[in-house]
Amino acid sequence: MNAPRQHIPQLVIALFLALMMGGAIWLKIPLSWVINDALVRLAMNGVLVLSLVPMLNAGIGINFGLPVAVVAGLLGMCLTVNWKMTGLTGFVAAVLMAAVIAVIFGSVFGRILNRVRGREEITATFIGFSFIPLTNFFWATAPFTNPAMLWPIGGKGMRPTIGLKSSFAKILNDFLPLEIGPFVIPCGLLLFFACSCLLVHLFFRSATGKAMQAVGENEGYARLCGIDIDWMRQLATILSTVIGAVGICVYAQSYGFIELYDAPMMLAFPAASALLIGGSIAGRTSVLNVIIGTFLFHTMYILSGPLANDLLVPEMAEIFRLLLTNGVILFAMLHAGGRNGKPCPAM
């Protein structure tokens, strides 16, 4: 209907990116660096952003309870590291175990969210926040045995960061790298991200996916059509949690460390920002929104840092970037609110 207005956030960010790109070329920052980093970042964070989609489309809202999913992923990875599984086997085992734990966490999480209709986002935020201290206690006391994971002074309890170099760090990043001149395209990583996107996309083309979208768009209608709303919402939560758990595995293997304790606390916010910048509208978020949003959001980070340091105005750049991202998110939310606030007239 009002397509051009709908895309203002993306246009603004893209314009800003183009401006920064121009600046980068002018300052002779090699373009290959920027592009290589942007591709890695896209795939590394993309799966986490993707994990918000099922819950958003089922009308539960943005999953600010992402820490729950992340903890499931961390648990999966810690177990594999503990059993000293390495390489591709290690990574696959971590992903599988993370997924199994995420199914359990997700079903409990979904059940809680079904009891708080209409206040899901704030509830999820607090579930996420309160889950962290609980897991902190777990990390500090869990009977893991691999000495490479334990506190170096006390000798028990997990370290806040666990190196993955000997297990599966960069396993996807270094899988099938395609080198074209100065550009290194991390095919393995991108392929994994693409497959995840494709799976989510196909899911929303299936009957269950459509039913889930219907629940998000019009719950009353979906109920009248004989769809089990609670189950759909729970399924969406489980899916989000599983994808989130896989997402943190991808993130960790690319980052090279598992970060425990308070690290998952704030992960939901950049993911939500990326998705909103991608132009997501509640109930109708597509994989394309995820890709565009993640790319724009993270490329902005990549460009603003070195550019600001070379221009010797680091504080200004930081302020400007924050202003722009948060402003764009506010705009995106206002826009989405406007559409929800006034439903399309019949004519």
């Binding site: 000495p147 170096p152 000798g155 370290r159 190196g163 000997s166």
Partner: peptide
């Protein structure tokens, strides 16, 4: 410890 993946046994801790 994290970067080098130091394996510190319980006896050596501290």
């Amino acid at each position: 410890p994290a970067a080098m993946e130091l394996e510190i046994t319980k006896e050596d801790a501290g």
